[in-house]
Design a protein around this nucleic acid. Structure first.
Length: 597
RNA sequence: GGAGCCGUAGUUCAGCCCGGUCAGAACGCCGGCCUGUCAAGCCGGAGGGCGCGGGUUCAAGUCCCGUCGGCUCCGCCA
């Protein structure tokens, strides 16, 4: 075999007249009788190679047997294509390689699908033949783009004095948060390691150890249901800094993100990024990671309907709920279209979807008869409704209203192409409450994680909450405690989140107490962190970016599967390898596991 | 745990609403022709019984039930 002197995609003006050797895959063959064209492809691109029967009958004969995806080495001379035969669609389209020598390195069976962009393959086919799927231009570009992003991220961290440290994968299960993946211990029958949901505790301990600035590009594992933007194993760009406050972490994050967008895409993001309070995100968009690239904001109507005759609304008010609406302006929806949206919200758990259509300044709707003249008038004012508008209502518990209208808003935005895809909407969500009441478990849970620090001035509220006996008052106190946390949102995706952490043992114990994590359990689960906090833990904070999501957004993709080399299906299966699979009885015996049922 | 969409040649998909030449198209594949194409072209050919299992019916890709798989979403994801 002869060895490559050029990548196919790198052949250029300066190779004219020179002899080069290319190694690659036969992308396509065009046989015209006396002349054969071979599009030869490698990682860097594609170039046309040509052989004429009368010039080189021996090579021609071999070239005639080539099929798609055969692997070959060719030696030949680069020349300018004859005038009029250039291909402007190819980077190398002005040149071609005249083949002098051809070596067949391997054949290929007929492919299950063509290596081209046009065919949209089912996810299972893509993943089963991932090695072929990744030969396709866009998939290859996704991974090469991701590769460049790793390099840029490392460069920015190094410029700012961060130290790269690896943390363990075989570690300890922590309560709260996602379900852990467990690994049975062979040496300790009945005991299990947990795979890390994030390096959270280790990076805090590295701060206590004095490393001051840490980063890691690291896999995290969570055994939860999958989504287009959620895989059981995913990559975080994780960092932590000592002797800093929110501003330091956020401004460093902004520099990192802005550098990525600039160097990889030439996009200038305006820094500092805008900040919006958590409460505003929910009030206006019904989401803590709103897509602000279109309107359709939520309109508050609870007050307007406080004396309503409409039973559906009244019941919502009686349970302390709220009434909100969105106005789909100028949509002039048909009954059929409204039915489709109704079906959508029913899928979210809504009983139905109340709506009003404005026609010739009049309100048309099955529910309008329940409204007084005054209510109708004020409704038109508050929603600024005009002829052609359709207003959708949700009346329920506050969280349900946010969920239903927030998701309906997104659904309409996508369904009716309201989203402005031309740019990137990048902003921080700040002022999260530290905890919220979890009705199902009848206790408070952390919004971020239990190591997030409350604001200094809110700590007294926390202390009073611990003492408070009356639940309603306790809720009021706890809910008014703000966290020193921040989430980064781009185009409606949460791409990062972090906080200033608790660095004093006493405060950490107070938080555990409110979360009703018993002292014994706290000791058992993360006593090692509490212990570390005894020995001079510096104030610290950090953030982690969801690297897969970030890359997907930058590439304009809806699914992170397209930026992961070997992802899993929605059921957590890898069609390429067949994982997960049954274990060999011997292996199970080694790790002291007996499978029941 | 739940909702929705989808599953028909190697691939992408039409046919399903209104059961009865409905088993089709394109690409790919195989053979032939062809000296400038680049999604080459022209001629010819092979290839599936409609994810799987029940049921309804004289008759089922087509209707019903169940099940498996893919996708999207809710729950879940500190």
């Amino acid at each position: 075999m002869f060895k490559r002197t050029r990548y196919c995609g790198h052949v250029s003006e300066k190779d004219l007249g020179k002899e080069v050797v290319l190694n690659g895959w036969v992308h396509r063959v065009r046989n015209h009788g006396g002349v054969i064209f071979i599009d030869l492809r490698d990682r860097e691109g594609l170039i046309q190679c040509v052989v004429e029967e009368k010039e080189n009958p021996r090579v021609f004969e071999l070239a005639d047997t080539l099929r798609s995806e055969y692997v070959v080495a060719v030696r030949g001379t680069v020349r300018r294509r004859p005038p009029g035969t250039e291909n402007p669609k190819l980077k190398t389209g002005d040149y071609e390689l005249v083949i002098k020598e051809l070596s067949l390195l391997n054949t290929s069976e007929t492919l299950p699908f063509p290596i081209e962009e046009e065919t949209h393959l089912s996810e299972e086919t893509k993943l089963r033949y991932r090695y072929l799927d990744l030969r396709r231009e866009s998939m290859k570009e996704n991974l090469l783009f991701r590769h460049k992003a790793y390099q840029t991220v490392r460069k920015v961290f190094l410029e700012h004095g961060f130290v790269e440290v690896e943390t363990p994968f075989l570690t300890k299960s922590t309560p709260e948060g996602a379900r852990d993946f467990l690994v049975p211990s062979r040496l300790h029958p009945g005991k299990f390691y947990a795979l890390p949901q994030s390096p959270q505790l280790f990076k805090q301990i590295l701060m206590v150890a004095g490393f001051d600035r840490y980063f890691q590009i690291v896999k995290c594992l969570r055994d939860e249901d999958l989504r287009a933007d959620r895989q059981p194993e995913f990559t975080q760009v994780d960092f932590e800094m000592s002797f800093v406050d929110e501003e330091d972490v956020m401004s460093f994050s902004e520099e990192l993100i802005a550098t990525l967008f600039k160097e990889l895409m030439g996009v200038e993001l305006k820094t500092p990024f805008e900040r919006i309070p958590y409460s505003e995100a929910l009030e206006r968009y019904g989401s803590d990671k709103p897509d602000r690239r279109f309107g359709l904001e939520l309109i508050e109507l609870t007050d307007l309907f406080k004396n309503t005759e409409f039973m559906v609304f009244r019941r919502a008010l009686e349970i302390g709920g709220v009434i909100k609406a969105i106005n789909f302006k100028g949509s002039d929806l048909s009954r059929k279209e409204i039915d489709e949206l109704t079906q959508f919200v029913q899928g979210l758990g809504a009983k139905g979807l109340a709506w009003i259509k404005v026609e010739d300044g009049r309100l048309t709707s099955p529910i309008v008869k329940f409204f007084s003249e005054e209510e109708k008038k004020r409704l038109l004012e508050l929603t600024q409704a005009q002829t052609g508008d359709v207003i959708f209502f949700s009346a329920d518990r506050r969280d349900a209203v946010y969920r239903i209208l927030g998701n309906l808003r997104l659904y309409i935005g996508k369904r009716y192409n309201l989203i402005d895809n031309s740019g990137f909407d990048v902003f921080w969500v700040v002022d999260f409450p530290l905890m919220e009441w979890e009705e199902e478990e009848k206790r408070f849970v952390s919004l971020h994680h239990p190591f997030t620090s409350p604001r200094e001035e809110d700590i007294p509220l926390l202390r009073r909450a611990v003492e408070e006996g009356a639940l309603e008052e306790k809720k009021r106190l706890v809910h008014s405690v703000r966290a020193r946390a921040y989430d980064l949102v781009i185009n409606g995706y949460e791409v990062g989140g972090g906080s200033i952490r608790i660095h004093k043992r006493e405060l950490q114990e107070l938080v555990f107490k409110l979360l009703e994590i018993p002292q014994v359990e706290a000791e058992e689960r993360f006593g090692f962190l509490l212990n570390a906090l005894r020995y001079g833990a510096p104030p610290h904070g950090g953030l982690a970016f969801g690297f897969d999501r970030l890359i997907a957004i930058m590439r304009g993709l809806d699914s992170i599967r397209d930026v992961i080399a070997f992802p899993k299906t929605q059921k957590g299966i890898c069609p390429l390898t067949g994982a997960p699979d049954y274990a060999d009885p011997k292996q199970l015996k080694d790790v002291h596991i007996k499978v029941v049922e």
